[in-house]
Amino acid sequence: MKFTVLGGRGLIGTQVVERLRAAGHDVVPASLSTGVDVISGEGLERVLAGADVVINLTNSPAFDESSIDFFETSMNNLGAAAEAAGVRHHVILSIVGTDQVPQLDYYRAKVAQETILKNAPTPYSIVRATQFFEFVEAVLSWTTDGDTVRLPSTPLQPMAAADVAAAVARAASERPLHGIRNIAGPDVVPLDELGRITLAARPDGRHVVTDDRAGMFAMVTGDVLTAPEDADLAPTHYTDWLQQQP
């Protein structure tokens, strides 16, 4: 099969491209660096020509309200281009629990992306993943003040980017779901504890203080960002992943 991977130069996209090529597929990675702009529509016709499947891993450059316009515009452009090219399967990567956190602009933006995909004529699959291990350091930096990191006790169930890429590649290689597949890591860990685990493995003089008002995830209530009952659980544990990092 021929796959077009939008966002094919990113953290997940690069690994999805590698996996699909290793399976013997014809894969076209597409991004701004290859002359494809999902906002203007430039290059979409070219990279979708002859594609059986398009995998959309593009992301908004911001997490604020502007992300809504990004996903609405990009999805409308891509949906029209996919239909015109005769694409038979459209896959996107979304977030577990995104429809249960309307107070966050970025999560509402991902709901808008999903809605446009569902209403388009091209058969589709939505892969919803939990937070990535690779982003934990960034989350800590958001609420760092000197040597103190303030984090809420929000339950998360993070997973490795490699496991996310494997799930996306698998979903894209199968028949369209016409629905959602949830994926998550094997362990539920409160965010403040995740921070302590990280700094214990990579000590840099900072320490974690639990503050349920700190940062973006303080706005999330309950366990909506953990795996629902139907989720596929990935094999990689965060502590094992940490030990394997340089």
Rank of each mutant, 00 (worst) to 15 (best):
G7L: 05
G8L: 06
Q15R: 14
E18R: 13
A23S: 14
A23P: 02
V27P: 00
D37T: 04
V38K: 02
S40V: 04
G41E: 06
L44F: 03
E45D: 14
R46P: 04
V47L: 03
G50W: 03
G50E: 01
G50D: 02
I55A: 03
L57T: 07
T58I: 10
N59Y: 12
N59G: 13
S60G: 09
P61W: 09
F63Q: 13
E65K: 15
S66Y: 12
E72W: 02
T73L: 11
N76A: 09
A82E: 00
T98V: 14
D99V: 08
Q103E: 14
Y107W: 13
Q113N: 12
N119T: 12
R128A: 08
Q131C: 01
F135P: 00
V136T: 10
A138H: 13
L140E: 02
S141L: 12
S141T: 11
V149H: 01
S153I: 07
T154H: 03
P155F: 10
L156R: 04
Q157L: 11
A161R: 00
A161T: 12
A162Q: 11
A162L: 13
A167V: 09
V168S: 08
V168Y: 08
A172H: 12
E174W: 11
E174R: 15
E174D: 15
G179T: 07
N182A: 03
G185I: 04
V188W: 10
L191I: 06
L191T: 02
L191H: 05
D192V: 06
E193H: 14
E193N: 08
G195R: 02
R196K: 15
I197T: 06
L199I: 11
A201C: 04
D204L: 13
D204R: 11
D204C: 12
M216V: 14
A227F: 11
A227Y: 06
P235I: 10
T236G: 05
H237C: 10
Q244M: 12
